[in-house]
C-alpha cells in the first residue's frame, strides 16, 4: 500500500527551496537529451523554465514527476528524493504536472474530470465533490460543470487542466507550456487563473519557449538550452 507523503512531517533541510534539481541527466532513444540540468525552486514562488523547442523542458518535468527515467542527478522535493519513485507516488506527495496536450478526459463531463483529481486525496464522493466544485470556481468553470470536456474551447480546456491539477491539492505545480495554442487575449485570461493559483500559495514552475508565452510574470527565470541549464537563474524585473 502506497502511503501519501506527509510533507509537513518531513525535515525541511533545503532552506527556502521546495524543489532542488541537481545535475540531472537523461536519455531518450539512445540520445542524451538532458546533460546537467540544475533547477532550484523557492516555496511559494513562480519560476519560468525558458528554452526553445527541443531544449528538454518537458523531459525535465517528466523526470521530476516520474514519467521518465533519468540517468543520474538528484531531484529533491522537501529534501525527499524523487528519483526512482513511481509517478503516482510522486503525485501523492503534491507534485503535479500539466501537459501541453491537455489532461482532459474527452467523454467525461467537466465536473467528472475534476473529480478524478479530487479523488487523489479522498475516497469519499461528498468530499471529492466539494474539492472539485472549489477548483471549478477558482478556474471559472462552474457554469460548465455538466458540459462534456471535449466540447470546451481551447481556453476552457486549459482551465480544466488547471482545475484537475488544483483538485489534487498540489504543493508544486509544473505547467508545461500552458499557453500553447492560445491567442493573446486568451493568454491574458489564463494568466488570471494561474495568478490565482499562485496567490493560494501553490509553487509554480512554468515551462515556455519565451517569456511572452508565459501566462504569468515569473519571479525567477531559468534558461535551458539543449538539455543544459544556461547560466545562473535570473530574477524577473519590472520591465520584463
Amino acid at each position: 500500500m502506497i502511503r501519501a507523503l506527509n510533507v509537513d512531517k518531513l525535515r525541511l533541510d533545503m532552506g527556502e527551496y521546495i524543489l532542488s534539481v541537481q545535475n540531472l541527466r537523461a536519455r531518450r532513444v539512445g540520445r542524451r537529451l538532458l546533460d546537467g540540468v540544475d533547477l532550484d525552486v523557492r516555496r511559494g514562488s513562480c519560476t519560468a523554465l525558458i528554452g526553445p523547442a527541443g531544449a528538454g523542458k518537458s523531459l525535465v518535468f517528466a523526470c521530476i514527476v516520474g514519467a521518465a527515467k533519468s540517468e543520474s542527478g538528484r531531484i529533491r522535493y522537501f529534501g525527499y528524493e524523487l528519483r526512482g519513485r513511481a509517478q503516482t507516488r510522486i503525485a501523492r506527495t503534491g507534485v503535479i504536472r500539466t501537459q501541453p496536450a491537455g489532461a482532459t478526459f474527452g467523454d467525461m463531463t467537466v465536473l467528472d474530470s475534476v473529480l478524478v483529481g479530487a479523488f487523489l486525496r479522498t475516497s469519499l464522493p461528498a468530499r471529492a465533490r466539494a474539492k472539485a466544485r472549489e477548483a471549478l470556481a477558482l478556474t471559472g468553470l462552474s457554469a460548465a460543470a455538466q458540459v462534456r470536456a471535449d466540447a470546451l474551447d481551447a481556453l476552457d480546456r486549459k482551465r480544466l487542466d488547471l482545475a484537475c491539477a488544483l483538485a489534487t491539492q498540489p504543493q508544486l505545480l509544473l505547467l508545461d507550456d500552458p499557453a500553447a495554442g492560445l491567442s493573446g487575449d486568451e493568454r491574458v485570461a489564463l494568466g488570471g487563473v494561474v495568478g490565482a493559483l499562485s496567490d493560494r500559495g501553490i509553487t509554480l514552475v512554468v515551462a515556455a519557449r519565451g517569456l511572452d508565452a508565459c501566462p504569468i510574470r515569473p519571479g525567477e527565470i531559468v534558461e535551458i538550452e539543449r538539455g543544459i541549464t544556461a547560466g545562473s537563474p535570473r530574477y524577473a524585473t519590472a520591465n520584463l
Binding site: V65, A67, Q87, T88, A91, R92, I96, R97, T98, Q99, G102, A103, T104, F105, V116, G117, L120, C164, A165, T168
Partner: peptide
Amino acid sequence: GAAQDLGV
C-alpha cells in the same frame, strides 16, 4: 497518461 499525471 493524463490520469497518471493526476496520481491515478
